[in-house]
Design a protein around this nucleic acid. Structure first.
Length: 473
RNA sequence: GGUGCCAUACCCAAGCGGUAAGGGAUAGGUCUGCAAAACCUUCAUGCAUCGGUUCGAAUCCGAUUGGCACCUCCA
């Protein structure tokens, strides 16, 4: 069961070898609950769900921890901006706690509808303030911090490998290039970042805690270090997030974590999901209206359509979103489901695979998913199975169930739809007349009656077992 | 300005030195009085362009063109 994964730290595909054979520690950067998740955010969570499923499929036991950021994630680069939750609270005249509660709920609703497996531990930043303070104290003891202008900063010059994940060239980096971001003059090095705020230029926050440095609130990056180490140990296997987390968030997490414990590497494998691109460029929340799962549902798409759509691209490639492309995923998924339902209707059952051909398919699928999660290739394997006449129905069905442990498309629980019973007497009378007309070979009348049924919203199908009606969607 | 990633058919998208997966769309066909559905077949001597390395290149190297991302809120 050799799983290979692309490690951002080495910029190469590596054989996955967990620190502890028994259990894989997986930390995935969760949502900042100040607004709805857009479908680009959701793509990253789908990639992480896929990763977890692939590991379990490969025989590993996984301990999955995900954070909920409900404080401290600023609109600036982690230091100078306003707290996102605070900002939303002011805008909507609700409390920050209400905002966090509301958007957490919305997030997990999306999460569940997309068929994602809940993390073993979901942890809120506000429940772990003491852990963060303890971590900052460790950094302080080791001489990695300084207080300036009332805030506690991490000094990147106190370590010799800052920026190794992003391969940052510290000399050529420019800060505060964007016009609305101003340079924090309290910093010794412009790349230093805040661990604890007691003074924000935006004034008092409603979420404040006492600390050795005064009443205030934590910097954004410290929560992930504190909580991941609390639940997974000071060194663990995998840390995931979106590709945008590499240069700042994950870079700072590594700096403070390794500085605090003195242990390297803090995390063995770094995996990052690429962006979903809008037709206009990247998904953006600040542009106003943005694409959410709820919006997709309003337009008639099922959450699983979006999941299927995402499986069609590799997680490390940018994926172009458009409704036209989503439509092709809808059709493709429907075709898969129709074939699976047909198998169920035949009474296919899950069996132990013995046939050479069936085992070959399973092997190929396993190889593809374990090769850095090549889902597009895995989907091709699924089509191969569904279309292969040399496989028995039981073999096909069994392979579908095995594959879906990774896909998570809910193929195992697809229901054979009850034949829709039409009980509209008017329609049934028209159908009867048409059938009679057909028998009399009065095609003109038959066609006219079909038109009438069409107007009533019914589609006539002449099947092998006789004419039938179908309610049009 | 610096850094990194990418370019494959009508569209989406695999491929990681051995001769272009898959899906959707399209077009033919079977079936049908006609339809619908279903099924079958078709669909890149070609991988942005130009050079180079190699017995062999979509895959490696260089240049050019175009796109994207990060540094600068977002996964």
């Amino acid at each position: 069961m050799p799983v290979s994964l692309y490690n951002t730290m080495s910029r190469s595909v590596e054989k996955f070898e967990p620190i502890d054979d028994k259990e894989v520690g997986l930390y995935t950067c969760g949502p900042t609950v100040y607004n709805y998740a857009h479908i680009g955010n959701l793509r990253t969570y789908l990639f992480e769900d896929l990763l977890k499923r692939a590991l379990v499929f490969s025989g590993y036991s996984v301990k999955h921890v995900m954070n909920i950021t409900d404080v401290g994630h600023l609109t600036g680069d982690g230091d100078e901006g306003e707290d996102k939750l605070e900002k939303m609270a002011q805008k909507t005249k609700r409390s920050v706690w209400d905002i966090a509660e509301y958007y957490s709920k919305a997030f997990f609703s999306d999460f569940n509808q997309l068929g994602m497996i809940a993390p073993d531990i979901t942890c809120k930043a506000t429940d772990h303030i003491p852990h963060m303070i303890a971590l900052i104290e460790r950094l302080e003891e080791r001489g990695h911090t300084y207080v300036s202008g009332g805030n506690v900063y991490f000094s990147i010059d106190s370590i010799d490998d800052y920026g190794k994940l992003a391969k940052l060239d510290l000399e050529s980096l420019r800060t505060a290039v964007r016009e609305d971001v101003t340079q924090d003059t309290n910093k010794k090095n412009s790349k230093d970042f805040v661990l604890w705020f007691t003074k924000s230029k935006f004034g008092e926050q409603s979420m404040m805690w006492d600390s050795p440095w005064g009443r205030g609130f934590p910097g954004w990056h410290i929560e992930c270090s504190a909580m991941s180490m609390h639940y997974l140990g000071e060194q663990f296997d995998i840390h995931c997030g979106g590709i945008d987390a590499i240069p700042v968030h994950h870079t700072n997490e590594i700096a403070q974590s390794e500085a605090a414990t003195g242990k390297k590497p803090w995390v063995k494998y770094w995996l990052h999901g690429e962006f979903l691109l809008d037709e206009t460029g990247k998904m953006s929340k600040s542009k106003g209206e943005f694409l959410t799962l709820e919006l997709l549902k309003k337009k008639g798409y099922a959450p699983m359509d979006y999941r299927f759509f995402c499986l069609g691209g590799h997680y490390r490639s940018q994926l172009k979103f458009s409704f036209a492309t989503l439509d092709t995923a809808v059709t493709a998924r429907k075709n898969v489901c129709d074939r699976v339902i047909a198998l169920k209707r035949e009474g296919s059952r899950a069996i132990e695979l013995k046939g050479r051909k069936a085992l070959d398919y399973k092997e190929a699928f396993t190889e593809h998913i374990q090769n850095d999660l090549n889902t597009p290739r895995c989907l091709a394997d699924l089509w191969g199975v569904l279309k292969d006449d040399e496989l028995s129905s039981d073999e096909k069905y069994s392979l579908v169930l095995i594959f879906d442990q990774v896909f998570g498309l809910g193929l195992a629980t697809l229901q054979v739809p009850e034949e829709k019973i039409i009980d509209d007497p008017e329609a049934l009378a028209l159908l009867k007349k048409r059938t009679e007309a057909k028998q009399a070979k009065d095609w003109a009348l038959a066609d006219r009656l079909r038109s009438e049924l069409d107007a009533l919203g019914y589609l006539v199908k002449d099947t092998a077992s006789g004419p039938s009606l179908e309610k049009k969607m």
